[in-house]
């Protein structure tokens, strides 16, 4: 297996406060990596920096994705290159229908990659198929993006977008938070459906439950801006027993 994403000694500040203090992490093609860690450790910051959100200062370090310098790429180019962030708090966009939004995004990415755009019929066919997999009703195509969606609907809509855009690097930022057990299962199945030997996944979560469904290959503990421990799924079980404090102290 080859390395798809290579984060090297990444230091990141927000308004002069250092949040990430030297994160190094390699993820291979086909690998599903989980990042766990206490509140305020910098998990969401790492996700945002990968997607290209503004407002963060990268003071040193590098991120290479498929051999390219990710930090040099504008947000939308990263997406076209296969980066997808499932938001912890999906953003409401009144006045834009969900289907119009996803179609605009999909076609913008295809255009960027020099592929032909999908017409309305082709798009609808694909969208119906994906919505069915996630047990979503089709009315939501016409609903405004995330407006009036319940917590579960919002997260499901994120996975729907992900499956429509079929990324090669999927970052799931606390996608399991606020989901009931049944919805969690559907969402996890949706993510598992996308797994391939190409896709690398980063799952940020606080809970063991999502990991039971996703069966990540590696688990990394991020604490105070650094990866303090890396292991396999037994680490998550240990974590449930000892808590972060126990593991951080031992590390």
């Amino acid at each position: 297996m080859t390395i798809a994403l290579e984060i090297k000694d990444l230091h990141v500040e927000i308004s002069d406060k250092e949040i990430l203090k030297g994160v190094s992490l390699n993820i291979e093609h086909g690998e599903m990596a989980a990042i766990m860690g206490p509140n305020g450790a910098g998990k969401s910051t790492l996700a945002s920096v990968l997607a290209g959100k503004e407002g963060y200062t990268i003071t040193s370090g590098s991120i290479k994705y498929l051999g390219k310098n990710l930090l040099d790429m504008p947000i939308d180019e990263r997406a076209a290159a296969g980066v997808f962030l499932a938001f912890q708090y999906p953003v409401e966009i009144p006045g834009v229908a969900t289907s119009a939004f996803v179609r605009t995004a999909l076609n913008a990415q295809r255009r960027h990659r020099g592929e032909s755009e999908l017409d309305g019929i082709e798009f609808l066919k694909l969208a119906r198929e994906k919505a069915k997999e996630l047990e979503m009703s089709e009315d939501f195509f016409q609903r405004e993006v995330n407006v009036g969606f319940s917590g579960g609907e919002k997260k499901r809509a994120e996975i729907f977008q992900m499956s429509m855009l079929s990324p090669t690097l999927a970052i799931l930022d606390e996608t399991d938070s606020g989901l009931d057990i049944d919805t969690l299962k559907i969402v996890a199945a949706g993510i598992n459906n996308l797994r391939s030997d190409k896709l690398c996944g980063i799952v940020i979560t606080h809970y063991q439950r999502l990991l039971e469904h996703l069966k990540p290959d590696t688990i990394h503990i991020l604490a105070d801006g650094k990866i303090v421990k890396t292991g396999d799924k037994s680490l998550a079980i240990l974590l449930e027993e000892k808590g972060y404090q126990g593991i951080i102290e031992a590390a």
Binding site: I75, D76, F87, P94
Partner: peptide
């Protein structure tokens, strides 16, 4: 940011938001 993170170029994203 949300729109751009889905691959919509900045200009197009701005237009979409203005229209909406």
């Amino acid at each position: 940011f949300y729109l751009r993170s889905r691959g919509i170029p900045e200009n197009e994203a701005r237009k979409l938001l203005i229209n909406s």
